[in-house]
């Protein structure tokens, strides 16, 4: 408590000096570029900083925590105004976060959280995985409007938190609809090729005509499944409704040609809300909540998917 008030007090003193946002220097420690989404997050973060006239110092950790800790220490040594951190793992951050705190540099977490006392960071900007699944379930319930529907589910990597939470959320979303039933659920490891392989087996095990909808924990598996459905002589999007999560460019391309029906965005813009919170804090000391939830936006065939595809494809997905 004492530390917190101290932090606020020191921020108050800092406030006059940082009225000019253009003078801000912010360090960003990114995990690496293990997925297209990660690359897009990096691109968007750089764009968001540029838009605000912030000098962004970028460090790619190549999936290694020690690199991230090194980057954080160098940011502290350089005396940056704030640090954005996308932590590769949840544990082992206490020490370096203490150092940042002693140097009075606020740390904002992007996309993932850490197992450290809450007072060691200012806020965490993440999506709500359970909520994403629920949006997908709600959408399907509305779409079917009471008609009976047998659903097959392509899960993410078994045991991973997105797979667990997106499954849970979807089940919550359809729990009050007795007409919707998950008949088969298997992991597709978040990859296109496994998505295709597992969908092939679903189509044969249940018969294509008996499957009314597909829910995939990510778009890549849905893209693979679309090919399997086509090869089985069915029309994806019509014969089998498809809803998935992430909103990567290729699913919008599929939606533009009516081969997929809906996707829920896992926004790569985690930095925007973080920087907004930081600017508000520096301007008048508004302490942001410990968790800022990003919007899980639903895209359907009503949107101009071709335009979204064009917009997204250069983000590095």
């Amino acid at each position: 408590m004492k530390l917190k008030s101290l932090l606020i007090a020191s921020a108050m003193m800092l406030a006059p000096a940082s009225v000019m946002a253009a003078d801000l220097t912010i360090g960003f420690s990114q995990i690496g570029s293990e997925s297209g989404w990660r690359a897009a997050e990096t691109t968007v973060t750089k764009q968001e900083a540029e838009k605000r006239g912030i000098d962004l110092k970028f460090a790619d950790a190549q999936q290694k925590q020690e690199n991230q800790i090194k980057a954080l220490r160098s940011f502290i040594a350089q005396g940056v105004d704030a640090i954005l951190l996308a932590p590769v793992v949840a544990t082992g951050w206490d020490e370096v976060l203490e150092e940042a705190k002693e140097a009075e540099i606020p740390v904002m977490l992007l996309d993932r959280t850490v197992d450290a006392p809450e007072d060691l960071y200012m806020t965490a900007v993440t999506s709500d995985l359970v909520h994403e699944g629920k949006v997908a379930g709600d959408w399907l319930q509305d779409e079917m409007a009471g008609a009976d529907c047998s659903i097959v589910e392509l899960q993410g990597t078994t045991g991973s938190s997105p797979a667990i939470d997106r499954k849970k959320g979807f089940e919550e979303g359809i729990s009050d609809a007795s007409n919707l039933k998950i008949i088969r659920s298997q992991t597709g490891d978040f990859t296109r090729s496994q998505g295709k392989v597992v969908m092939e087996s679903f189509l044969k095990a249940e018969g294509g005509a008996n499957i009314c909808a597909l829910y995939a924990h990510n778009d890549d598996m849905a893209v693979g499944a679309i090919q399997a459905i086509k090869e089985a002589g069915l029309k994806p999007g019509e014969d089998i409704k498809i809803v998935s999560i992430d909103s990567v460019p290729d699913i919008h391309l599929a939606m533009a040609s009516g081969e997929a029906n809906a996707t829920i965005e896992l926004t790569p813009n985690m930095a925007g809300p973080a920087l907004d919170a930081l600017e508000a804090y520096l301007a008048d000391g508004t302490v942001p909540p410990k968790w800022i939830q990003t919007e899980s936006k639903l895209y359907t065939l009503k949107d101009d998917n071709q335009a979204i595809y064009e917009l997204k494809k250069d983000l590095g997905y």
């Binding site: 293990e34 997925s35 490891d189 990859t191 296109r192 090729s193 295709k196 893209v223 090919q227």
Partner: peptide, 14 residues
């Protein structure tokens, strides 16, 4: 074959 199957090269997972 694996790339052709999914019409894309997935360097992370292929």
């Amino acid at each position: 074959i694996v790339a052709a199957d999914i019409k894309g090269a997935d360097a992370n997972n292929a």
